[in-house]
Amino acid sequence: MRDRKWSRRDLLVAGTASAAGMMFAAPSKAAAPPPTAVTSAMVEAAKKEGKLSFYSALELNTAERLARTFEAKYPGITVRVERSGAERIFQRIAQEQGSGINAVDVANSTDPAHYLEWKKNGWLAPYLPDDVAKHFPADQVDPDGMYATSCAWLEAIGYNTNLVKREDAPKSYADLLDPKWQGKIVKAHPGYSGAILTTTFVLARDLGWPYLEKLARQKVMQVQSAADPPKKILLGERAVMADGNDYNLVLLKDQGKPVEVVYPTEGSPLIIVPSGVFRGAPNPNAARLFQSFFFSAETQQMLVDVFAHRSFHAHVKEKGEHVPLANLKLLKADPAAVQAQSEEIKARYSKIFGV
């Protein structure tokens, strides 16, 4: 069982057993839970538990910074970070929950479709931090209070400015098909990264699978995480990235590195990163305290200032080097559609790119 890879189809079976038939239940019509403020009683209860497990698809340095900042704010509570790609986290939680193992307290994923599965299974606990209720737009909050968007970013094109002149750089996805880029492109894989799964979904939807078939003929270097393409162009291993997190390039450019971000003329895939508390959390009070901390204005501003992520918190200021979301054409995905097509997308992509 430990080495088994779980697909969404496997999860349906496991969910039926572990959630006592809740897998195919209709979405809850119950009202969302009342907003919860952090109180001294909550903090004391969390300190008695003394620990929590945070499963995260954020980059390791980001997840660790969140953990260490929380520990400094609430001494006596230790955060164990379990970091991996979103699809790996999904498989791990499916295996644990399907085997009756309650190990995860809080999870965040770059694939919002995961929360549809976890909610349908009855694996998430309703919890609505005060900040979420007061300062986040309704479309970034589950109506039943099971999860909310902890941060966001865009998938973008990018290039190494030492290898590519600004006037020659690709400005669109269509430009990546120019023969001059053959053997010079890097991109990430939807089988590992939830962000790239969403990106692949919107590109296949808006540009068509024939576009991806043509891109594959460009002798593309294939990597795993959405954080990997920016690193490859920084090192000069490839001149251009076809996808990758925009925040990596913004941070590198801030450091004077020779990279540039391009928001394609066709639009940029918007990646939202939800977070939720698990119903079977072994440390429920610490889990709720961490969720409230995650969505606080202070933490949200840190994610923007230090890691160049985007926040939907009304009191958080955008990073100055970022092109405002309002000025960009955004390609948004329907998580339910991604959920329904996930296995097909990954299989078709692997066949086209030969990986």
Rank of each mutant, 00 (worst) to 15 (best):
V306Q: 12
S311R: 02
N327H: 15
R288L: 09
F294I: 07
L289I: 07
N327C: 10
S311C: 01
E321P: 05
M302C: 05
P284H: 10
R310F: 12
P335Y: 05
R288P: 04
F294T: 08
A336C: 00
A308H: 14
Q300D: 10
Q301H: 04
N283A: 11
P324K: 06
T299M: 13
D334G: 02
M302F: 08
K319V: 05
V323H: 10
L289A: 08
P282Q: 01
K319E: 13
F312A: 03
P274K: 10
V306A: 06
L331G: 01
F312Q: 02
V306E: 13
N283V: 02
L328A: 14
F290N: 03
F278N: 12
R279M: 12
R310D: 08
T299L: 11
L270S: 03
F295N: 01
F278C: 14
A326L: 01
I271M: 03
P282T: 06
S311M: 05
G276L: 12
V273A: 04
L328K: 13
A326K: 14
L330Y: 06
A336L: 12
V273N: 12
A336R: 12
D305N: 14
H313P: 04
A308E: 05
L303Y: 03
F312V: 08
K329A: 14
K332N: 07
D305M: 10
R310A: 01
F294L: 14
T299F: 07
V306C: 00
L331A: 03
P335D: 03
M302E: 05
R279T: 07
A286G: 10
